[in-house]
Every structure is written in C-alpha cells, then in structure tokens.
Computed example of a mutant assay.
Amino acid sequence: MYAKQSGKALFPFIITLLLGLCVYLYLPNSQGEQSDFTPTATQVTAHTVASEENAILIEAIGSARANQAIYIKSAQNDYVTDIYFKDGDLVSKGQKLVQLQSQQEELTVKELAINLREEKRQLERLTELSRSQATAKSLLEEQLSRVDATEAQFENAKTKLAEMTIFSPFSGILGKRQISVGAYVNNSTIITSLDDISIIKVDFKVPEKYLAQLKVGMKVMTQNDAYPEKTFTGKVTHVSARIDSITRSVEVTASFANKSGLLRPGMLLNTALQLSSNQAMMVPEKAVIPQQDKHYVFQIEDGIATKVEVHVTGRHNGWVAIDEGISNGQQIVTEGIIKIRSGSQVTVKG
C-alpha cells in the first residue's frame, strides 16, 4: 500500500522534470534562430530619373506631296524622233527629254532670217535716200513696218522651233515613259510625270482651338509605316487662312528636307506638331501611382523604397513628365510596386 502511493507521488515530479529538460534544450536553439533572422528584400525593377525635353505635341495624320509635280506634255503637235530618258530617271533642270520632228520649223526660221536681212538692207537704203528726197520718206515708213513684221515672224518661228525640243522645267525624278519614238503627240498627250521630291510637303489638320498658337517655323515630326524606327523632322511652312466649317480645324502644311529620297508623294504620314517644349523629369508611366487627384512614385535610397508625392505636367507615348517631387539621378521603382510599401527593403534587378 505504501509502495503504490510512493509511485503515484513520484509521477508528477517525473513529468515536470521532463518538461523542464525539454524547455532547457529548446530555448537555446530558438533564441539563436531569432537572433539571426533578417527581413527578405523584395526584388524590383528601377529607372534612373533624367532631365529630358518635354514636348507638348498635337498628333495628326497627313498626306505627303512633292514640292513640285507636273505631267510633261508637248506644246506642239508632231512625231517623236528621239527620247533621251528612261523610266524613273533623275534629271536636272534644262535637261533634254524628247525631240520632235523639226525640219520644217528649221527651214522656216532659216527663210525668215534671210528675209529679215533683206528687209533691213532695204531699210538702210531708204534711210539714205530720205535725207535727200522728200518722196522717199513714205517708203521709209512702209519699210520700217515690213522690218517689224518680219522680226515678229522670225521670233515666232524660233519659239516654235524651240518647242520642238522638250526640256525638264526643274530637277526631279521622272515617272513612267508613256510614249515611244515615232508616236504622234499633241498638247494633250502625257509624255511622263516629273516630281521634285527634294522637299516633301505634308498637309494635316489641327483643331481650331490651337489656332492662336500656330505659326510658321514650328517643329514637326513625322513617321511612316515603311520606316517604323525612323523619324523625319521638318517645320511648318504654311497655316491656312480659313477654318473648315465642318471639322472646325485649320489646315497646316509642313515641309521636310528629303535628301535621302525615302519620303514619296502620296505617303500616309503620322505627324506630330510641337506646340511648346520644356525640360522635365521623364519617367515611365507604369512607375506613377495615381491616388484620387494626386500622384506618387516609390523612390529608392539605400535599399529602402519610400513613397513620395510628385507633380505631373504631361504624358506622351508611355512617359510622364514630372517637375516636382524627384530629382535628376534618383532611382524609382517601375516593376514590383504591388509587392512593396513605403519603407520596404528592395533590391534592384540587374
């Protein structure tokens, strides 16, 4: 009876001793682990802020046209004897293009030249006679009229002869040849086309609310799908005096130097007219957090992301212009924003 009671009394003591031993063995490891614990830094992508030009642009679609463009035609009617160009040739001003049959015109000029010399010889003779004979004065006046008439005929014949040869009126690129040697042409026959593409003009429309800001010389940028990574820069050369009553817009013409010849008449061009320009901090649009009527970014300094308020002045093509809140050279978070809060530790990828 006594042995059984003694065993029961020892049982709680043994349990307590075992629990104490477990606590003793566990606490050193637990405390050691807690002392070595550090928060894990969140990986983010960052952008280094830089001061860049912030342009206020008006975007529109325009149609390209040549600086000068004509169809080459003949002023005279006759047969073609020679052609001096090929399809698509680059030609200079005054370069010979086509020769028409001109033997008759050459003979007419030669005949009138002879007649004019004779009429002038007669005029000299009558001039000498008029000094001594009164009756010769009336003949002198008649001869003067003959000389004038012959000179007029001679000049007209020379003009017609000159028109039998067709020259390029300005420098440019020729189109397709539409005649052949031996063809009969008249003043309605199209021989070829000629375009001066050294300068390309683009016509586009701007809403009338910007009329007061429009002026000649403004910077214009344009792009075409044929050259998606190339931007052409020109300037405004004309602002229409009229407002379109249907679209309530004003037509603007911009001119682009086209030394490379990449721009061609008829191209559909995406244009951007620069109304004004200033320096601002340009950051990716995805880095800006809008909250009600305010905007914020996460600024990184010494591995800590801090949420700061910024002032946005404009947006263009995925970029935001900021003039207050951040400085040149600072880093801001662009990706990983949803995983952090102000004061979070971060590491920048790359």
Rank of each mutant, 00 (worst) to 15 (best):
G336S: 05
S276T: 02
Q213W: 03
L211Y: 10
G350Q: 05
T313F: 03
E128W: 03
Q68N: 15
E301W: 06
Y26D: 12
S92E: 14
E155M: 02
Y71M: 10
V250P: 02
G350H: 04
R264V: 08
S102A: 13
T38P: 00
E106C: 02
L107Q: 12
M164T: 13
S193K: 07
S240F: 02
I337C: 05
S198I: 01
R341N: 07
Q68T: 15
T271S: 07
E106Y: 12
Q31T: 09
K96I: 14
T81A: 03
I166W: 06
E124W: 15
F85E: 08
D195Y: 03
D225M: 05
A241V: 05
R177P: 10
T45N: 10
L214G: 07
G325D: 01
N258E: 11
D36E: 10
A254K: 04
N270T: 11
E105H: 08
Q101K: 12
A321T: 05
R117E: 09
L19D: 02
K307Q: 14
E285H: 09
L211E: 01
S30C: 06
Q68H: 08
V297I: 03
T334C: 10
L140Q: 15
Q31P: 00
E335V: 13
V147C: 04
G7P: 01
G329A: 09
A257K: 13
T306F: 04
S63Y: 12
E208H: 08
I72G: 09
K93C: 08
Y24C: 08
F256L: 01
I83N: 05
F298V: 07
I332C: 03
K158I: 11
K205D: 09
I58Q: 00
L174E: 06
L19I: 14
T313E: 14
G20K: 02
Q330H: 02
G318K: 05
A257W: 02
E59V: 08
I56D: 00
D302S: 12
Q345I: 10
N186H: 08
G182N: 12
E52N: 08
I304E: 11
G175H: 07
T231A: 00
A50P: 04
Q103T: 13
I322G: 00
S138G: 07
N67E: 13
K215E: 13
T253F: 00
V252N: 09
E59G: 09
R117T: 10
K339P: 02
L275I: 09
S63T: 14
D323E: 15
N187C: 10
N328C: 03
Y79D: 06
V312N: 02
G325W: 01
Q34H: 03
T135Q: 10
V109M: 01
V239D: 01
L116A: 05
V236W: 09
K230G: 00
T334G: 12
I166Q: 07
V312E: 08
Q103K: 13
Q104R: 09
A152T: 05
A162D: 10
S6V: 08
I289G: 07
T38M: 09
L268V: 12
E155D: 04
I246C: 01
T40H: 15
E309C: 04
E105T: 04
V239C: 00
V250R: 08
D78R: 06
N317Y: 05
